[in-house]
Design a protein around this nucleic acid. Structure first.
Lengths: 223, 223
DNA sequence: GTCTATACGTTGATAGAC
DNA sequence: GTCTATCAACGTATAGAC
């Protein structure tokens, strides 16, 4: 039961990073994620988001200006989460350990943030133009840096000479599948939801096949 | 410049599988695929489809009754295409040859029918309820049959004892990625589009890694 | 900062002339 | 079978009282 001073500042453009604003913005974004993950940008209505968060829809426009602004805020959150999760591989790492760790981290991301993954997937499927405006131009550079690590490992004879670019797509596709296609996985396997253990087994399986497929010996299984 | 008899039959409920009807329905479905692949079910408007196909939107309702009917027709086409493409693996096949052929077929599907793949992906991400109503209840049975083939190969010592269910998800996820995430792949790799050769190389790479990862020796490379 | 009322375009869908 | 005209519902967005 928090008591808040409603107007701490006479200037309405003053954005104090105040608790109310922060709290409301967070609640709106959370409700927006739910809708965007299910219906994409065009298919989502501000009205529904407002109802689900329990605020008049005018408030959504007050905080985020318009629908695109809210969508970009949601995407921005996702990209931030993404960056903070994957502190990436370096040439000096042991390939097997690093690759296994990366697969684990991606699977854990799919498990803990399936909605973020689905919003991202919908955006990319829809052409990714909004995302493209938000991503820095270094994105290609960053990607080539990641690929270069695999290339270096291959060149040093630490792993098979696999195409590093396609290896990354294999890692992305196979791990993301568990977040985006959950409904299909549940249907064909007769489950109502995917448990932590399901993700553990899926990760084990990916690590076993992909590492062996790259000529690497999996490290001792971690808990 | 085809000349058609406009009303070959006085009864308006008479559906002669006529050339006009067939031609119009096909054109509508084709335009609908474009929109559904980009915006999903909710995000797509009948108006836009009608404009793109060059017909009044009332005609769309005449042919498909309502938006859901059109969507189901589109999905139904995709499922049909899917079924006719994958005449599936059997226990008697040689594992390496069959698996390589399956990966090739899936990649070819991603290359030739990216829109079908994206519509399907959007539907599944959105919860897959429409799809679920259309799929027969034998779907689980069918899936278990596919998994049993891999299990039999493993039990016979023809390949490593990998979890057959997760192996299927690996195959689906890694191949579908090239259709659904084309925009991202183009962005990070600096291409404007994916060529036939790109798909060829991607397929080669998947076959090499996955087969080796399952303890199989890839068959002689086919053209 | 919040919320009611409302403007105004677009939506899916239909009626009815041709 | 085709197409124009139209409907009620819903879409985003804003004005303005509090």
């Amino acid at each position: 039961m928090t008591v808040e001073v409603l107007a701490h500042c006479a200037d309405p453009t003053c954005k104090p990073a105040g608790r109310i604003r922060q709290k409301n913005e967070d609640a709106i974004i959370k409700a927006a994620e739910e809708e965007f993950a299910r219906h994409g940008f065009k298919g989502t209505s501000m009205n529904t988001i407002a109802q689900n968060v329990g605020l008049p829809k005018a408030n959504l426009h007050y905080y985020f200006n318009n629908k695109l602004g809210l969508y970009q805020a949601v995407l921005s959150n996702i990209l931030e989460l993404w960056d903070s999760t994957f502190n990436n591989l370096t040439v000096d790492d042991d390939p097997a350990t690093a690759l296994a760790g990366y697969i684990r981290a991606k699977m854990e991301f799919s498990r803990r943030h399936p909605k973020a993954s689905r919003i991202y997937a919908m955006e990319v499927i829809s052409g990714g133009e909004t995302l493209s405006q938000m991503l820095s131009q270094d994105y290609q550079t960053w990607f080539r840096g990641r690929a270069a690590v695999f290339a270096a490992w291959s060149a040093a004879g630490k792993m098979d000479p696999v195409d590093p670019v396609h290896l990354i797509f294999l890692l992305w596709g196979s791990t993301q599948h568990y977040a985006d296609f959950t409904s299909q996985i549940c249907r064909v396997s007769g489950r109502s939801r995917l448990t932590k253990q399901d993700y553990q087994e899926a990760g084990d399986n990916l690590i076993r096949i992909i590492l062996k497929g790259c000529g690497l010996t999996p490290p001792a299984k971690d808990a």
